[in-house]
Design a protein around this nucleic acid. Structure first.
Lengths: 240, 240
DNA sequence: CGTAACCTTGACGCCGATCAAGAGCAGTGG
DNA sequence: CCACTGCTCTTGATCGGCGTCAAGGTTACG
């Protein structure tokens, strides 16, 4: 049975059949009755670039599937110092680290489309859907590893190594979504990158310039970066 | 029905009834038949202080419940720079972030007692035990938040703030295990602390000395620290 | 085409790293 | 009980990578 048959037969809810992240979001593990149930409580929503989706102290009323765009998570210290905790892309699930509050602010870096669920309903649905629980546990495990890699970067890498690691990471994300492995789009500002890497905008800018001068990368229009010498960049990144 | 009845009736496996972490480990959510099944595939094991339980590239053949002692997780860069990813205590589950390999080295800082399960058996058991899955997901969420706090610390806090945050964290762990909230035992060396905080031993030592001079903390025998001025230390930590 | 962000580059300063030496401390054996 | 030994911890002097401050260039967008 091909996809068209599924859609026309109505086995796949309209909202899901049109979803750009259909095959890479957590929903891919759901059997059709489950998917229908999910779809019934889902709300699709679009945020514009620059919009704040939620603040860190907000009650966590929703969990999200990112169906398109790039999302940034940040935390603040009381004096305004900011740390970027991570970026989320098409297919990512947002809500794994949530408690009663979100715990971090959620920002749309591009136009972002999400599929949103009330937390309470999602929790209830989770209890009766072991395959979804499996999937979330697996993703939590992946995120934990990613967080550890971030910790390693912040604790022990130099400025150059951090920037190189970041560029490789962005290119890799591009590749997993079907793009080229040596082309990275950077929808975030230098300040965002700096706050992700525990640096300043000036330092990020200097390192990027240096890598460009050494012909390891090229800067293209629209904040795109071409990795000209993958081996050299990997070398500069000091490994994962 | 009290605990004694349970034990003498045999509803609780011997290995579990004697477990020091019985009520705080993941097993607490298991119904008795489930607990018995778990116990059947569990092996208790003791490691001496300083022992390496596993290396980061080892195949992850086991997951662990820490039933006593303190465990440290570390990652290395190829040139030997080390990052301490975290510490685990009595009641903690070790294995959430694991893939095919452990991904980080596992070290016993004190005498450590664990309850160990073969990964494959544990996975199979997990699939048929939703309440355990729930529990793991909840713990993964907590760990993710803890990792984010660590990221904030490494990315944006000063040396003094890092050390202060660390002392508060250790005291809090002490408190959750029934100890005093202003007494922390530090079974790790200054080098371990430094590698956790992204600093050097010298800097950690200097900051500790300064806090001692300001009478914010006292150093007691056996690597214990008394928090003399909790408010002041919290102040020095710049929040969570 | 004008304006407001964002980005880059340069000069300088500081926090924490590095280098070095001595003090404290636990374990060992006489 | 004490001397010895090796490690950990502390403290001081100096250094350097990255932050800070400042100014100019570039890009996006109305």
């Amino acid at each position: 049975m091909d996809l068209t048959t599924e859609i026309t037969s109505g086995a796949c809810p309209k909202v899901c059949s049109e979803c750009a992240a259909r095959e890479i979001s957590i929903c891919r593990v759901l059997p059709h009755p489950g998917l229908r149930q999910m779809a019934d409580v889902a709300a699709t929503k679009t945020y514009v670039a620059g919009e704040t989706i939620a603040f860190e102290d907000d009650s966590a009323h929703h969990v999200f599937n990112i169906t398109d765009g790039v999302v940034m998570l940040t935390r603040l210290l009381s004096d305004g110092r900011r740390q970027v905790l991570g970026f989320l892309f098409k297919g990512d699930f947002l809500g794994l680290a949530q408690g009663a509050e979100y715990g971090c602010s959620i920002h749309a870096l591009t136009t972002v489309r999400v599929c949103r669920f009330p937390t309470s309903v999602f929790r209830r649905f989770l209890l009766q859907t072991p395959e979804l629980e499996e999937e979330l546990l697996s993703r939590a495990s992946d995120e934990l590893r990613a967080a550890q890699t971030h910790i390693m970067l912040l604790g022990r890498k130099t400025a150059t190594e951090r920037v190189a690691s970041f560029l490789l990471y962005m290119a890799e994300r591009e590749a997993t979504l079907g793009g080229s492995p040596d082309l990275a789009f950077l929808p975030m500002t230098r300040a965002d990158i700096a706050d992700y890497l525990g640096l300043t905008t000036e330092t990020v800018s200097r390192v990027v310039s240096a890598l460009k001068r050494q012909r390891v990368i090229q800067l293209l229009p629209h904040s795109a970066v071409r990795i000209a010498d993958h081996a050299q960049l990997l070398n500069a990144s000091a490994g994962r």
